Simulated scan of single mutants.
Amino acid sequence: MLTRLSTHLAIGFLKFLAILPYGLVARFGDGLGWLLYQIPSRRKRVVHINLRLCFPQWDAARRNEVAGQHFRHVIRSYVERSVQWFGSAAKLEKLVQIESEIDLLDPDMPPTLLLGAHFVGIEAGSIFINYALQRQCGALYQPISNPLLDKVAIEARGRFGSHMASRADSARIVLRWLRDRKPVMLGADMDYGKRNSMFVSFFGVPACTLTATGRLARTGNAQVVPFIGEVLPGYKGYRLKVFKPWENYPSGDDYADARRMNEWLEAEIPHIPEQYYWVHKRFKTRPEGEKGFY
């Protein structure tokens, strides 16, 4: 647990890194990730369990290769919060390539839920899609247990006009935002427990999956537009990939809508498996009577 002094020091260090060249910061984070992967840890174990569950066809060498790359990406993503939170808009513009299948500047954009997938570049993608839209957006976030760090994160994530709301207080706020034609960013591909969730297959394993996206889209008469923040090779920055709205979604069937999201992830993750957020205990919540994996 970070003390107040150590939190201030950590934030100060991130602000210092933000003024350095991005390539230097990215290489530092990559090297730190490589070093930490050499040390046994709970999170390293979680990564290996998740990869073994989702890709049982991989041999140990392939799994270890992807796990090592992923650990480097994760630690690097924490270090790169420096640029994402404190770097200038001009610096971010140079670092983020946009590939969008929709017109982000469309003044007549219908009510829209922007569904961010938890790849390691989600922070950069979420901040920059808000900037690229050039309008006020809403965004849901999971509070950080450290109050000072939470305050800094909220300010950084909302600095281009995004209005932040805690996930716990979200439903009414999101519907109000949608009525006001304010695009809303949210993530739904993590295990938040059984509330508002059901067990849906994810790479063949039952995963506790939120049903909120489909229900919010149905109630708010909104389209769902998924996006991915991808880290580019060669320390070149990021690619923000914005996809077309899902057709025939929501369907009115919570299970089918949750499965739609997981199917989409199953199609996208194999393109860059090392960048999906395997350090998260995606299968932490289990069906009644089933033994845990972690």
Results as ranks from 00 to 15, higher is better:
Arg181Gln: 06
Leu178Ile: 00
Ser170Pro: 06
Ser197Thr: 04
Ala168Tyr: 13
Ala171Val: 12
Asp180Thr: 03
Lys182His: 08
Ala171Gly: 00
Ala171Phe: 06
Arg172Phe: 10
Asp180Trp: 08
Gly193Pro: 10
Ala168Cys: 03
Pro183Ala: 13
Ala171Gln: 03
Asp191Tyr: 11
Val174Trp: 04
Arg179Asp: 01
Asn196Pro: 05
Arg181Leu: 06
Met198Asp: 08
Lys182Asp: 03
Val174His: 03
Asp169Gly: 11
Arg176Asn: 14
Leu178Met: 03
Pro183Met: 14
Leu175Lys: 07
Leu175Cys: 09
Leu175Ala: 08
Ser170Val: 04
Ser197Arg: 05
Asp180Tyr: 07
Gly193Gln: 10
Arg176Glu: 13
Pro183Asn: 12
Ala168Met: 09
Ser201Phe: 08
Met190His: 10
Leu178Pro: 00
Lys194Val: 01
Asn196Asp: 15
Ala188Asp: 08
Met190Glu: 09
Arg172His: 14
Phe202Gln: 13
Ala168Trp: 10
Pro183Arg: 11
Asn196Phe: 10
Ala168His: 14
Leu178Gly: 00
Ser197Gln: 07
Met185Lys: 01
Gly193Glu: 10
Asn196Lys: 15
Trp177Leu: 10
Leu175Met: 10
Pro183Trp: 11
Val200Phe: 06
Tyr192Val: 01
Met190Cys: 06
Arg172Ser: 13
Leu186Ile: 07
Met198Val: 03
Val200Lys: 05
Phe199Tyr: 13
Asp191Gln: 13
Leu175Tyr: 09
